[in-house]
């Protein structure tokens, strides 16, 4: 197992290097002068000259490539044009917000999807199964921005139950007397609508995967054994059928987490949630190239690492899999 993880990490490094190269080429293939793109147009000519020098944009292309790799290896992602801060700082500031929103949504969706999918398969053909399956299909096929806007309109505008933008209220956070749990409550309150959106979009696919996987598992011989042993229906379902049926759901959850950054972009934009997805959209539309470049690299890294995590988790859940 240890060897497997080391091997996979080596693969991740190689793939990341390839992605870095592709990014380097893409940003230089884009039409126009790379200097114009890499250097903030708001700077004075002198400052710009200095920066061009610093970025090594006057060097031959291979030297530039070397400097580029070295900068990334050392964690220098350049300065964001818009924020004037180092890109790394911007990302560290926004990343936890995305993780908070997305991981919570995916975990909730997986818990609900798995337990309802289990029940749906168990009562196949009955009204419970029908209700769960229809609900899953409807929410799963909804167009996310439409759903998000609908929720904003209904819960935010008509009922005025939840705030519709941002992550926190200024008056709560600027007040020095606010306790930590009041702050947490405030964030949770703001998170309700984006969380609901992501939850609704995701739980359906987990439910459907779990249901069909569970139906396959129920045909297995060891389920007959469990029944013959005189176990209760609940024990058969939860101890014998569900752990085997869970395996495909793990892949599904892993993939959702892998695409959390770009997948969350729409939700974050609609709800002005200060996360990485929204930052990526912003960086691209405002020509903030250093920030965009770093965001793309982050997406690639997250996708690669999620895959490793899924593989390791699989071996943990299914003893037949050994690396």
């Amino acid at each position: 197992m240890k060897r497997f993880i080391i091997k996979r990490m080596a693969q991740v490094v190689v793939v990341l290097f390839l992605i870095l190269t592709v990014l380097f080429v893409l940003f230089r293939l884009a039409p126009g002068d790379p200097v114009e793109r890499m250097v903030d147009p708001n700077l004075t000519l002198e400052e710009a000259e200095h920066l061009v020098e610093q970025l090594g944009l006057k060097e031959p292309i291979l030297t530039q490539y070397g400097i580029y790799l070295k900068n990334f290896a050392m964690g220098h992602f350049g300065h964001s044009f818009h924020y004037g801060q180092p890109v790394a700082e911007v990302i560290w500031e926004k990343l936890p917000n995305t993780i908070l929103l997305f991981t919570t949504a995916v975990i909730l969706a997986a818990l609900v999807g798995v337990s309802w999918g289990k029940i749906a398969a168990w009562s196949k053909g009955k009204w419970k199964d029908l209700a769960f399956t229809v609900a899953a299909l409807v929410t799963h096929t909804l167009f996310l921005p439409w759903l998000a806007l609908l929720l904003v309109w209904f819960f935010g505008y008509r009922l005025e139950w939840f705030p519709i933008t941002g992550m926190m209220s200024e008056e709560v956070w600027l007040d020095p007397d606010t306790a930590w749990w009041q702050k947490a409550w405030d964030v949770g309150y703001h998170m309700m609508l984006p969380l609901l959106t992501l939850f609704l979009i995701h739980f359906g696919s987990y439910l459907l995967v779990m249901r069909s996987s569970m139906l396959d598992t129920l045909k297995e011989d060891y389920i007959v054994t469990a029944r013959a042993k005189g176990l209760s229906e609940k024990a058969i379902r939860n101890r014998h059928a569900a752990p085997n049926a869970m395996l495909p759901v793990v892949t599904s959850v892993g993939l959702s987490l892998a695409f959390s950054i770009n997948g969350g972009a729409l939700t974050e934009t609609v709800f002005s949630w200060p996360g990485i997805g929204r930052e990526l959209v912003f960086a691209v539309s405002h020509n903030d190239y250093p920030l965009a470049q770093a965001c793309f690299l982050l997406i690639a890294t997250v996708v690669l690492f999620s895959n490793v995590v899924v593989d390791v988790l699989y071996a943990y859940l299914d003893p037949r899999i050994r690396y």
Binding site: D221, T225, H240, N244
Partner: peptide, 11 residues
């Protein structure tokens, strides 16, 4: 059981 090969839960 007839299918002893699969009669035990693999996990």
């Amino acid at each position: 059981f007839q299918a002893a090969m699969n009669a035990l839960n693999p996990v």
